[in-house]
């Protein structure tokens, strides 16, 4: 419940304040968000399956975003930043999809 409220408040804040993304963060923010979304979907799935653990969620959330940003950063340093970004997005996208499928199965049994 608090998570949903937090998400809503965050979106509202972002829409109202409309802050500029600092330059150093620009390449990493979208990837970090996708990673965080993956963590969020994983958390929803775990909740539905009764194995949700706040500590695991916090750690996976932070680790996901940091690792995703790190991979992109490393890719930028190696000159394959755009390819690695694509790779990370693909992997995270697949995970989000599979999590969403599991949520769907849990909720609707279909």
């Amino acid at each position: 419940m608090i998570a949903a409220i937090g998400l809503a408040i965050g979106v509202t804040l972002g829409l109202v304040l409309q802050p500029d993304v600092p330059l150093w963060l620009q390449p990493y923010l979208p990837i970090a968000i996708v990673a965080a979304l993956d963590a969020l979907f994983g958390a929803v799935r775990a909740t539905l399956e009764g194995v949700f653990n706040e500590r695991v969620f916090v750690v996976s959330f932070v680790a996901n975003t940091v690792v995703a940003a790190l991979i992109v950063f490393l890719g930028d340093q190696l000159g394959v930043g755009s390819q690695l970004t694509t790779a990370v997005v693909v992997v995270l996208g697949i995970r989000i999809f599979s999590n969403a499928a599991a949520i769907r199965r849990d909720l609707f049994h279909a």
Binding site: A3, L7, I9, T12, P19, L29, V58
Partner: peptide, 23 residues
């Protein structure tokens, strides 16, 4: 921990809106 989770979700929502706006 619930508050922490809420905070993380807040950060995520904020980042999401910011990124969409910047994009």
């Amino acid at each position: 921990t619930q508050l922490l989770v809420g905070l993380l979700c807040l950060v995520l929502g904020f980042g999401l809106a910011t990124q969409v706006h910047a994009n």
